[in-house]
Design a protein around this nucleic acid. Structure first.
Length: 488
RNA sequence: GCGGGCAUAGCUCAGUGGUAGAGCAUCAGCUUCCCAAGCUGGGGGUCGCGGGUUCGAAUCCCGCUGCCCGCUCCA
């Protein structure tokens, strides 16, 4: 349903106008790559996260295999700390991967990795290396670190360096044994987590699509190596279906399987769930979620140390003395399977979603402009957010048609009654048409209006956001009717 | 990080060296009308931030920050 003329400017303007998203620290001039969620935005984002948690974790049936699943499985949750032991990031590979030294050439504006400068070519004279041409003006090697650095303890001590997590996943892996020994789960099972992550992006851009502080919704699903490919397929399809179920129905949503050479060195299968955001070129898509088959890479890393690929195998990276460059914990994270009487390191399927990106996609998909007739029958343009009822920040708005004859009192009573169940908004300011429009822009599925007839027979009008059609229902039936219509 | 463009009220913008403006939005009152833009009145801006030139700067100059576009980057 989303209009073709949905533009990023319109989305950003709506987000600010209606209080979905503000620039962080705006009164001080703003700070790049950080965003604040306003009164409606926080409700929308919470609804997304709660839908995810409900659908993936708390509402999951451990006792039967869902359609398409190889077997029944358990799901549990975690909420781990943002700052972890620095060794976590060394063993996981993030430390080496996320920090690099770069040299810039001030003349030709090119950038080279400091450790690759000897096999790089000068862009102005490819036969020479950077720095060898007379005009070259190279900077000293400068460190780029995509991980936010901080210090543990009040004293600024280089030995107490720590990092804000660049992903939530590692908190799950390092707790694998804790969960196994306390939650009475057996492989296959999944651990879910929602939380903030931080990356010092070089170029944060495109509104909340790429920011330096963002929120992830991640599942690490542990299974035996034998059926890992089946589980990979299961999660890939299940996650796409989730987006569709909440309204991403258009051709703008796609699943894209990575080619083997595109995958990370540890992965034996990766698919991106992508959305054609308005800021992208025609035919381009932006990642909402990556579903990755990570084999036993993560658990092995935290056992043995940082792994690198050597031929077809992953081996511990060692220094000249044969010691691991970044040692693991040394703890045994393998699993003993009672049924098969075998011991193995579980393989991991990781569906990793960005909550902020998902919210942006839902907003883009829901944004629509149509025309409805005004009091004189002339078509007037209308902006409406056709959000799925589960995601709508406000479920029902209640209005008195006029501010007299007991209508505000009657409406307030309905408001208080519905408020027991849902987030409901009361408004008596401005013309009735204007109040409908405000709710249309906020994505509110239903408006209830108290009018003259209400005082006589206790009926109200119930207006549908998408059709603008009204029907007259008993005020006493509202909770039941709204519950049916919301279907949540 | 590099190059280009932009920055005045919540929004869209006018104002090019001489007391900061309009429309919309918002708020109060009137109107009581079922799909925005009726009437009256009110509030709201150290003109992104800092420095400089000038008797005087939103306006000219320099630096910074933010946003947009293109590179770069995107585990």
């Amino acid at each position: 349903m989303s209009g073709n003329n949905t533009t990023m400017e319109k989305i950003v303007a709506l987000c600010k106008r209606r209080g979905f998203v503000f620039q962080s620290s705006e009164i001080y001039g703003g700070i790049g790559g950080f965003w604040d969620y306003g009164p409606l935005g926080v409700e929308l984002k919470r609804n997304i996260k709660e839908a995810w948690w409900r659908d993936m974790v708390s509402g999951h049936d451990d006792t039967t295999a869902p359609a398409g699943a190889p077997a029944a499985y358990s799901m549990v949750g975690l909420d781990t700390s943002i700052i972890m032991h620095p060794q976590v990031w060394r063993a996981s590979g993030h430390y080496d991967l996320f920090s690099d030294k770069f040299v810039d050439c001030k003349t030709c504006k090119a950038r080279f990795r400091a450790d690759h400068i000897h096999d790089s070519a000068c862009p102005r004279k490819p036969s020479k290396r950077p720095g060898e041409h007379d005009d070259c003006e190279l900077t000293e090697p400068r460190e780029f670190n995509l991980m936010f650095k901080t210090f543990i303890g009040a004293l600024i001590d280089p030995n107490a360096e720590a990092y804000l997590r660049p992903e939530t996943a590692q908190g799950i892996f390092v707790n694998f044994k804790n969960v196994l020994s306390t939650a009475r789960v057996k492989v296959p099972f999944g651990i879910a987590q929602i939380g903030k992550s931080f990356r010092n992006e070089i170029t944060p851009r495109n509104f909340i699509f790429r920011s330096r502080e963002f929120e992830q919704m991640e599942i690490e699903f542990f299974c035996s190596p034998e059926d890992s490919q089946d589980w990979y397929s299961y999660w890939r399809d299940k996650r796409v279906a989730w987006y569709v179920s909440l309204g991403l129905k258009s051709e703008k949503l796609q699943l894209r399987e990575h080619s083997p050479d595109e995958r990370s060195h540890y992965s034996c299968g990766t698919a991106d769930i992508e959305y054609a955001f308005p800021f992208l070129e025609e035919g381009e898509f932006g990642e909402l979620e990556g579903v990755s088959h990570r084999s036993d890479f993560d658990l092995r890393s935290h056992m043995e140390g940082k792994l690198i690929r050597e031929g077809d195998e992953l081996v511990v990276e060692r220094n000249e003395h044969g010691q691991p460059v970044h040692p693991g914990s040394g703890k045994d994270l393998s699993y003993f399977d009672d049924r098969t009487q075998t011991k193995y390191i579980p393989h991991v399927i990781e569906p990793s979603a960005g909550a902020d990106r998902t919210m942006l996609a839902f907003l883009c998909e829901a944004y629509d402009e149509d025309a409805i007739p005004d009091e004189k029958g002339v078509k007037q343009e209308r902006v409406v957010l056709r959000l799925h009822p589960r995601l709508a920040p406000i479920k029902v708005a209640v209005f008195p048609l006029v501010k007299k004859d007991g209508q505000p009192e009657f409406a307030a009573e309905i408001y208080r009654d519905l408020k027991k169940r849902w987030n409901v908004f009361y408004d008596q300011k401005g013309s009735i048409g204007k109040r409908y429009r405000r709710q249309d822009e906020s994505g509110t599925p239903f408006c209830v209006t108290v009018d003259h007839q209400t005082i006589e027979d206790g009926t109200v009008t119930l207006r549908d956001r998408d059709t603008t059609q009204q029907e007259r229902v008993k005020a006493s039936d509202l909770t039941r009717i709204v519950e049916e219509r919301l279907n949540i």
